[in-house]
């Protein structure tokens, strides 16, 4: 069914599809406009920079999640995995600091990238080799990674060595020509993600597997390998986000990255990627991450909503945005 739709749509309704692809950006523009009307401080350069920088984590992880979801998978472990990778990275940096000095930072970052990719590989292999639903597997690894970080911190917090703190801080707080580093890193990750997804053979296989795994298999695509690699990309992106995350607060706690998996999945879906797979939209994901962060910011800046009801309004806005999206693209 879904494969038939996707096969037909591009020919007959090409224009509408492109219009629907713009939906997340239109929604973002509307929310920004609303923010500007509600509070004049919203458009202050500092506020906008804060919000964009903060959304980097969800956007970077979201690029990876776009791959996983496009193949028809789902990864619930990303929030816990981020906390686990952050914990390992801090421990590695602290251990290397006495011998390597500030070089412990890039060395620790390299460790993080390897550990993150391996975590993704673990998820991917259990799913494809073990033939278990991604939902269940990543629910399991979510608990495992969360328990590990709680154990590593003894339930408290794990802080980066003071000698590294000053040297590492600029990775979150610094900027190139006024553009904060996390934003630069997000753009680079999204560019690479878009290139892989839209311009390479692997990228076309990702959406092919997601829209119909059986058809893809008959056409000679190694479905398991494509899916596993998507999870490895996801793990790598989590590690990149971890590298940007550590310099901000300099510590890992058992609540680090809690419920981020839901924010990431929401950002990906708001961005126009289908939750059932087969269609991926990298830049939409980035817009989705921005939308979530801007809504939260506008909620604090406005005095209209009681602090008890903020989450309800956020939820309602997300649902309305999705409904608007559905009605504009279904017509």
């Amino acid at each position: 069914m879904s494969s038939a739709e996707i096969a037909v749509l591009p020919e007959t309704e090409g224009f509408r599809i492109r219009w629907a692809d713009l939906a997340p950006f239109i929604a973002l523009a509307l929310i920004v406009l609303a923010g500007a009307l509600i509070n004049s401080n919203f458009m202050a350069a500092n506020n906008l920079l804060n919000v964009i920088t903060r959304s980097a984590f969800i956007a970077i992880i979201g690029v990876g999640a776009t791959f996983v979801i496009a193949t028809g998978g789902l990864d619930l472990s990303i929030g816990s995995m981020l906390a686990f990778v952050v914990g390992i990275m801090i421990m590695a940096m602290n251990a290397m600091a006495p011998s390597l000095g500030v070089w412990a930072i890039p060395a620790g970052a390299a460790v993080a990238l390897v550990v993150g990719s391996l975590c993704g590989l673990l998820n991917g292999l259990i799913i494809t080799v073990g033939r278990i639903e991604p939902f269940i597997v990543t629910l399991g690894t979510m608990g495992i990674f969360r328990a590990f970080i709680t154990w590593m911190t003894d339930g408290g917090s794990l802080s980066i060595d003071n000698s590294l703190r000053a040297a590492y801080r600029p990775v979150y707080f610094g900027d190139v020509l006024g553009v904060p580093y996390p934003v630069v890193i997000t753009i680079v990750v999204a560019l690479i993600g878009a290139f892989v997804l839209y311009k390479t053979k692997y990228g076309r296989r990702v959406t092919a597997v997601g829209s119909n795994a059986d058809v893809a298999r008959f056409s000679g695509v190694h479905v398991g390998r494509v899916r596993t690699l998507a999870f490895v990309i996801q793990g790598f992106c989590v590690a990149v986000a971890a590298i940007c995350y550590v310099p901000r607060l300099g510590a890992a706690t058992p609540t680090t990255g809690q419920l981020w998996e839901l924010q990431v999945i929401t950002a990906v879906v708001i961005g126009g990627t289908l939750l059932r797979g087969g269609k991926a939209h990298i830049w939409g994901t980035v817009a989705g991450a921005l939308i979530l962060e801007v809504i939260a910011n506008v909620m604090v800046l406005s005095d209209m909503v009681s602090e008890y009801l903020v989450a309800a309004v956020q939820g309602a806005i997300i649902i309305i945005a999705m409904l608007a999206h559905r009605f504009t693209s279904a017509r």
Partner: peptide
């Protein structure tokens, strides 16, 4: 269980 700083202290 030790799910955040304070309860971590309780367990300790």
């Amino acid at each position: 269980a030790a799910t955040h700083g304070w309860t971590g202290g309780v367990v300790y």
